[in-house]
């Protein structure tokens, strides 16, 4: 259904820690693997071994450079998949009702058998979270691994998205934002989890933890640190004298 639910019982989503993501693309490929084999049509690739390879992925890792006013430029790896917006424009534009937001957990899904492949939902999504599959001609997007998180054929500990399970750096967290005590809610609160493009009014559920301040070793701490390097003696011989004295005390 194309109209959005007023509220959802839970608000499932991801927290992505930009301070920790090393940009390894593990989440990209595990997502591709799981979703090729599971929900809906396989994620196809065209010209797979040719001059212009292109394929459907539900999660992509960008990278950005940030140049602060003073100091060295920084580099941030930036994974991006569907943010399962509360006010998801991709849902409301869909003419067929193929795109919908689940009332029980807020997951935004495409019912592929209803999708006419008009592409409008991808136009409406500001985040580039939807990709039309070139072979199957239906819209593909992150399912938040809806077929893993409740899957009774998986051991309990594996009932989380494939990308979260695989992330080597532990930069991806999955949980319920409607529950203030969940890990994701707490991380968001503690670390100032941010929304992407808040001005678009989509109210994304997923949050990004900003990188911590960088390159502070010298500027912020030099006064505290300086005493640690106070010389024990100026001369090498003085050093040996100090050595002797200190050894006595050991």
């Amino acid at each position: 259904m194309t109209t959005l639910p007023q509220t959802t019982e839970r608000k499932l989503g991801l927290v992505i820690d930009l301070d920790t993501c090393v940009g390894c693309h593990a989440c990209v490929i595990s997502c591709k693997g799981w979703n090729t084999e599971n929900y809906g049509a396989p994620l196809s690739d065209t010209d797979a071994y040719g001059g212009d390879p292109s394929g459907t992925f539900l999660n992509r890792v960008h990278s950005y450079e940030v140049q602060p006013e003073a100091g060295a430029a920084q580099l941030i790896h930036f994974p991006k998949s569907c943010l399962h917006c509360e006010d998801a424009p991709c849902v409301t534009v869909c003419p067929t009702g193929a795109s919908y937001k689940r009332v029980e957990d807020g997951i935004v899904l495409v019912n592929e058998t209803d999708c006419i492949g008009c592409g409008l939902c991808a136009w409406a999504c500001p985040y580039g979270a939807r990709e039309m599959d070139a072979v199957e001609k239906v819209m593909k997007k992150c399912t938040l691994c809806v077929d893993r998180i409740y899957n009774e054929n998986l051991p309990e500990e594996d009932r989380e998205p494939a990308c979260v399970r695989t992330c080597p750096a532990g930069a991806r967290h999955f949980g319920d934002f409607a529950d203030p005590d969940s890990n994701v809610s707490k991380l968001t609160a503690e670390r100032g989890g941010m929304e992407l493009m808040p001005e678009q009014g989509t109210k994304p559920v997923n949050r990004y933890l900003p990188p911590r301040p960088k390159d502070t070793i010298e500027t912020d701490q030099i006064d505290i640190l300086a005493p640690y390097l106070a010389p024990v003696a100026e001369e090498a011989t003085g050093f040996l004298g100090w050595l002797d004295k200190t050894l006595e005390k050991l």
Partner: peptide
């Protein structure tokens, strides 16, 4: 790296290039 950053420990990267591990390092 993920584990120690979660604890708030400091990571320093010495590298001419700031990608990957060096990008997440607190000091480069």
């Amino acid at each position: 790296i993920g584990k120690i950053k979660a604890r708030g420990a400091r990571v320093v990267g010495v590298n001419p290039i700031r990608t990957g591990y060096n990008a997440v390092a607190d000091d480069w």
